[in-house]
Amino acid sequence: MNAPARALKPKDYASDQEVRWCAGCGDYAVLKAVERVLAEIGADPAGTVFVSGIGCAARFPYYVATYGFHGIHGRAPAIATGVKLANPELDVWVIGGDGDMLSIGATHLAHTLRRNPDLTLLLFNNEVYGLTKGQLSPTAPPGSRTPTSPLGSVESPLSACRFALAAGARFVARGIDTQKDLTGILRAAHDHPGTGFVEILQNCIVYNDGAFAAITERATAAEHQIHPVHGEPLLFGAARDKGLRLAADGSGLEVIEIGADGAGLEEVIRFDRTNLALATMLASLEPPLPVAIGVLYDNPAPVSYERALRAQEEAERARIGEADLGAMLRQGPVWMVTA
């Protein structure tokens, strides 16, 4: 890849296309965060590819001044896998929504995560179908009233982060569209040498406004969010006076107030980003418990999928030496017919 001649600024990564999301859509903030990350890492626009499926979020590639591929509904992870198979050097980002990646394309998400190609995969979760006008999403909470569930949903929602962990993802994070540190989370996902999966809680102002208000409301956010830091105790609250410990019955995490009831800091679990069981418990936290935001799991595999395949191919090439296709055809049972 040719390095860009001068350091690019976030706005240099914006394409000349007019952004068509609704005014006030959370997607704008994510686009800005991604542009900031691209500038931070000094991404070569020519060596970067954004791949998407179908949905509001999937328009993303049109707005970035890199290579872009707007695919079909649900299939972006498969298309991106093909891009990496063909050229492991490309820096590939995959963008999709909850309908795209957890409904019609859930299979591809699961299998891409377990194979672990080196991709940065952003799932914009707004708990609703935006582009098709407000239908029920697989992540919508029970009771959701939508044009397709006018009496209220009786389905159980899918948790994106738990889904990713169960599929074998080696990097799982959760962010919020307007969160200041979204850039840091995206950066960590990008730096992970495998599939970096980020669920972004994204507000759809038109069809599901305020879906995450209970978590994101500025005044109470400190009480309703927990931001795990590797090696540090799992503390939260404006005064950082609350922590998480393992419930005595082993069923999950529970909140303790430091100092109250004689509970001390030593009871609070220290976060280890390579602990899968802890990541799963953190990913499962729902209000009224604090919702975990940040990197929940980061445990790189020794080698990414496409690199492992390339290594096998190189070993094969070394094994057969100079043999070319023509020589291969002459191996095995062959016979000569003479005139």
Binding site: I72, R75, I79, T81, G82, V83, L85, A86, H111
Partner: peptide
Amino acid sequence: AAVCAAIGASYA
């Protein structure tokens, strides 16, 4: 996924 990966490969 098979055809989509093939398309991704051709794109690349």
